[in-house]
Structures are given as C-alpha cells and as structure tokens.
C-alpha cells in the first residue's frame, strides 16, 4: 500500500525543552494508526507538527509523495490534513451546523447561507450514523460523545484525507466511547481516510487500529501491526519505561 504521510527525522524544541528528538513515522492509505506513549512523550507536539500548527526545527514531511513545508493549519488542511483536538475546537455558543461549517461557511454574497448549511449538516451527520436530534441546538447542549462526533464529522466532511485525532476517547463513558469507535471503524471500512489516533486506553487501540506506534523520549521506539501485539505487551512497554526511569531516579 502507498504511504499517504511520511515523517522523517522530525525534531522540535521549545527553548530548553526537547519535545521531539528524531521522529520517523509513516501512515498508509486507509490505515488507522494508534499513537501511544506516556504523558509528555511528545504525542500532541507531533500531531501539531503534522497539522501545521508547529514548524519542525528539523526533518521533513512527505504528504502523498510530495515533500511539503507546512505554513499553517489552513495550509495543512488544504492538503487534506485535518485535526480533532483534545479541546474539540467547538464553539459552545454556536449551533451544531454553524460548528460543522466553522471557517468554511457557505455564503450567498456576504451573507451566510444558513439553510444550505443546516441541510448539509443534517444529511452528513445522518450519513455518518451520528444521531444529533437537532442541528439548530447549541453545541453546549450536547453530550460529550455527541460533541466529539460533531468534531469528527466536521473534519471528515471537510474532505480530510488524513485525520488526526488527539485523545478522542478521553473523559468519555463506555457508551459514548463506543459511538466514537464505531465512527472510526466506519471510516476505516470506507478506506478513504487515513487516521492517526492518540489514545491511552490500549484495549481500544488494539480494537480499532491496524498498527501501533510508541513514542518515547521524542522518538518512535516501537512499530508493529496490532495483530502481532497483545494488550499485556503494550502495557509492559509503557510501564517498563516508567520503571526504568524510577530506577534511574529521574
């Protein structure tokens, strides 16, 4: 299969802090890649480099076979890279459909085309199997899972080819988590979108991902298909690191 994204020798420092030392990562077409690692391993920084939020100090990104230097989030988005951040980037005060079209609003002249946006948002949520009773409702009124689903639907709908999900299952109940996992499985089945998921729940990673990468001290130290790893092995990898650090007195 062809790689839609290749990250080569990427490094990123913030002053004295080295967030990413030397990251090499690849993402295949239609694949769901789980990115795991301890807190502070640099997972979010890596996501933010790939989505154009941070400029790497070193290394290169290859998107669909072309080397690119991302100038901004908008630039990355124009290449089909979209992110669902931990904070979801939803505006509580706005309706579901305005959030779905945030910064990509449909217009008639200078005015918003609310009717068209409402209709398309409804159709798209339905198409993705997301049950939101009323697209006119303020996002503040939705449950955690529904909010996450709106954020994912927005990213997918904006023609994302590479979707980055930063802890989509954090702080979510079992039922809501299932909603999101189903959504991701659904995307995988279609095969149009390639996904990188940051997650802490390894069972869920094994459940939904094709491959898993472990980020440690700013580089990828483990890369295997999920069919070849067990939950115990994953847990041991992360815990062992923690144990070693304690032994070293860090």
């Amino acid at each position: 299969m062809s790689d839609v994204l290749v990250v080569e020798h990427v490094a990123k420092r913030f002053g004295a802090l080295t967030a990413l030392r030397d990251v090499n990562l690849r993402l295949e077409q239609g694949e769901v890649l789980g990115l795991i690692g301890d807190n502070g391993a640099g997972k979010s920084t890596l996501i933010k480099v790939i989505c154009g939020y941070h400029r790497p100090d070193h290394g290169r990104l290859v998107v669909n076979g072309q080397e690119v230097v991302l100038h901004s989030v908008d630039h990355a988005r124009s290449l089909g890279i979209d992110t669902v951040y931990q904070g979801l980037a939803l505006i509580n005060e706005l309706s579901v459909y305005h959030n779905m079209f945030l910064n990509r609003e449909l217009r008639v002249g200078p005015l918003l085309n609310n009717r068209a946006m409402r209709k398309l948002a409804r159709a798209h949520l339905e198409d993705m199997g997301v049950n939101i009773p009323n697209v006119n409702a303020e996002v503040a009124k939705l449950s955690g899972g529904q909010r996450q689903a709106v954020a994912v639907a927005r990213a997918v709908y904006s023609d994302a080819r590479i979707l980055l999900l930063d802890e989509p299952l954090a702080a979510m109940g079992a039922k809501e988590g299932t909603l999101i996992l189903d959504l991701i499985r659904d995307l995988k089945a279609r095969g149009e979108v390639s996904v990188i998921i940051i997650a802490h729940n390894y069972a869920q990673v094994l459940d939904v991902c094709d491959r898993v990468n472990l980020l440690q001290h700013g580089s990828i130290t483990f890369d295997k298909p999920t069919s070849e790893v067990s939950l115990e092995e994953l847990t041991e990898l992360v815990v062992a690191e923690y144990r070693n650090r304690r032994l070293r007195g860090e």
């Binding site: 939020y53 988005r77 505006i91 005060e93 706005l94 305005h98 945030l102 217009r107 609310n114």
Partner: peptide
C-alpha cells in the same frame, strides 16, 4: 448574526483556542 465576520466574532469570544484551532 448573518455574516462570517459575526460568526467568527462569537467564536473568538466564546472559545479563543478553539477558534484558533479551527483556523480562524
């Protein structure tokens, strides 16, 4: 209430980080 500018004004005041992440 009816333009992009207004929507983005609400977004910026409602969730500054979110609005930035959305590319506003």
């Amino acid at each position: 209430t009816r333009t992009r500018w207004g929507l983005h004004t609400i977004s910026v005041g409602g969730n500054l980080i979110g609005a930035t992440e959305a590319g506003i």
